[in-house]
Design a protein around this nucleic acid. Structure first.
Length: 509
RNA sequence: GGCGCGUUGGUCAAGGGGUUAAGACGCCUCCCUUUCACGGAGGAAUCACGGGUUCGAAUCCCGUACGUGCUACCA
């Protein structure tokens, strides 16, 4: 293992960035920061058929939003580039050939149809394994089964061929997983995975090992779905670079769907009504938009926080962690082995908490944009700042600020008449006409004096102040919601308060 | 089917031989507020099952069940 901590996140640019992907980034990032290491982003684009335009840029955008910018990447550069596997093509071939030379790999010339036929034959023969392995390879068309001249000939003639790892049976492969402890695999069950594809690209298996070596990766964290192929990677390390250089592995638990079981997918989000991607993702072909946490009004602080505690905790009762907190307290050993169901309700709670505890300046700009998108322009920043502070504890996601705060900018378009009508009579009307004239002379215009004069007049008129207060609220807000009503009056100002009362009196008659 | 991994309330989870089995989300009740929230006080709800080992098991061992991942020239 290399001394300096160097970790990598290695996504395939095939679409939106999934929750699980962001969590993998997070754990990598935290580990790097905690140990003064480097965080590398490597683009694994070896499957040319699955590439999606824009997906790579999207990944960078998501990481930037989350505040986890890689130290080395396609964008940032670095001493171990290129960081896009498609641009490292020649490198892999060389290692694959070396494996063949050393007897750890071989050429295979089977066509897809022949592979299919093999599986059919195995299946009908009652075999448990349908794999291309030490059992089945003897009946296939590969360099193990033909004289060197024929292999040479086929290679020269140019029919498409692949290179497969030669896994010998009867060996136990083991390694220590930082989360799961000692892992052991019997090579009898490991198949001869393709290392180099017919199109000249490596598969993940070869590329991940070669690049982790070349990029001096010290710790490799990835999803649990990779566990079954870990023995192939270990074998490759052993054959190519020596186990002493191999990174330490950690296989992260899966994030599961909230209902039933199974890996959380984009589909589940659509079905259950919550996002699965970090940010909005627009499919370049269909133009379908898949919703992201950012656009739904999540704060990056909350997003990271909720992801961090999905499968990890520090052993105390603490649940709210800032990124700095996490860097300090995170330990990969405390990550759970079992998968965790995603709970959108709890996710919203985290966002609510972060809205409440973060300074307004952290998200004021985004709220301004939300208002502007709704047609409220020319907003005074200081006024907005005040408003946000007044309503922040009743907002779960950012767009709630519009719903909860629109009346600070516009007079209500309609009133909760069901609440007002039963209480409205001539006496109330008289009262509010009186209060208008009293308000006009009130100086200074502040919540406390407004409330005093309001209540004084109420008792003089012998009307219950509470009822009047409710009506005043509906007059100013339109509904029975919001911060204390006299604070609202103070905030929107004397003139606007009087105007709204006047308009409401007309509307109630 | 084979192989791997996992299993504490509805969900996230602490606890790793002796605990009244923490805490959080959600839900319910009450207080605060003549609004909605925030806040506060309570409540219901859990160790998958069966065998062992032990004076004693949620904790250790073995089975079983269930779930899940992989079983591609995808990652």
């Amino acid at each position: 293992m290399f001394k300096k901590v160097r970790v990598r996140f290695a996504p395939s640019p095939t679409g939106g960035l999934h929750l699980g992907g962001v969590r993998t980034v997070l754990f990598n990032y935290l580990y790097a920061r905690k140990h003064g290491g480097d965080f590398i982003l490597r683009i694994e684009d070896t499957d040319q058929s699955r590439l999606v335009a824009g997906a790579e840029k999207y990944i960078f955008d998501c990481l930037e939003w989350c505040g986890m910018v890689p130290d080395e990447s396609v964008l940032a550069g670095g001493p171990y580039g290129p960081y896009r596997q498609s641009e490292r093509k020649e490198v892999y071939r060389q290692y694959a050939e070396q494996l063949v030379k050393n007897g750890n790999a071989y050429y295979a010339f089977d066509t897809p149809a022949e592979l299919e036929a093999m599986r059919e034959k195995l299946k009908s023969g009652g075999s448990n394994s349908l794999q291309y392995d030490h059992h089945s390879r003897i009946m296939m068309k590969n360099s193990l089964n033909m004289p060197p001249e024929e292999t040479e000939h086929l290679l020269r003639m140019g029919p498409p061929h692949v290179i497969r790892i030669k896994v010998d049976p009867g060996e136990m492969v083991h390694f220590t997983d930082m989360i799961r402890g000692e892992m052991e695999f019997d090579t009898n069950n490991v198949d001869d995975k393709v290392l180099m594809k017919a199109d000249g690209m490596p598969t993940y298996h070869l590329a991940v090992v070669v690049d982790d070596y070349l990029m001096k990766i010290s710790h490799a964290f990835r999803g649990e779905e990779w566990l079954p192929s870990a023995p192939v990677h270990i074998l490759l390390w052993k054959y190519l670079f020596g186990l002493e250089h191999m990174p330490q592995w950690a296989h992260l638990p899966l994030i599961l769907k909230p209902d039933g079981n199974g890996k959380l997918s984009k589909r589940d989000g659509d079905r259950l009504g919550f996002p699965v991607y970090a940010m909005d993702w627009t499919d370049p072909v269909t133009h379908d938009i898949t919703k992201g946490f950012k656009e739904l009004g999540f704060l990056p602080e909350a997003f990271l926080n909720l992801l961090a505690v999905l499968g990890w905790n520090d052993g105390t009762e603490q649940e709210i962690f800032s990124l700095e907190d996490l860097v300090d307290k995170f330990s990969i050993e405390r990550v759970h082995k079992g998968g965790a169901k995603f709970d959108f309700e709890k996710a919203k709670w985290f966002n609510h908490e972060w809205i409440k505890r973060l300074g307004v300046d952290h998200y004021e700009q985004r709220i301004k944009e939300i208002f502007e998108a709704k047609g409220i322009t020319g907003i005074d920043e200081r006024y907005l700042f005040k408003v946000i502070n007044l309503i922040k504890e009743r907002c779960i996601v950012l767009p709630d600020f519009y719903k909860q705060g629109i009346f600070f900018f516009e007079a209500p378009g309609s009133y909760d008449e069901a609440s007002v009508k039963p209480k409205w009579d001539e006496g109330k009307k008289e009262y509010f006409n009186l209060i208008i004239s009293q308000f006009e002379n009130l100086e200074p215009w502040e919540a406390v004096p407004v409330e005093e004069i309001f209540k004084l007049s109420a008792s003089q008129k012998n009307i219950k102040a509470g009822e009047l207060q409710m009506i005043l609220r509906v007059m100013l807000v339109g509904s029975k919601t919001g911060p204390p009503v006299f604070i609202i009056a103070e905030t929107i100002g004397k003139e606007e308060t009087i105007k709204r009362i006047g308009d409401a009196i007309k509307a109630f008659n």
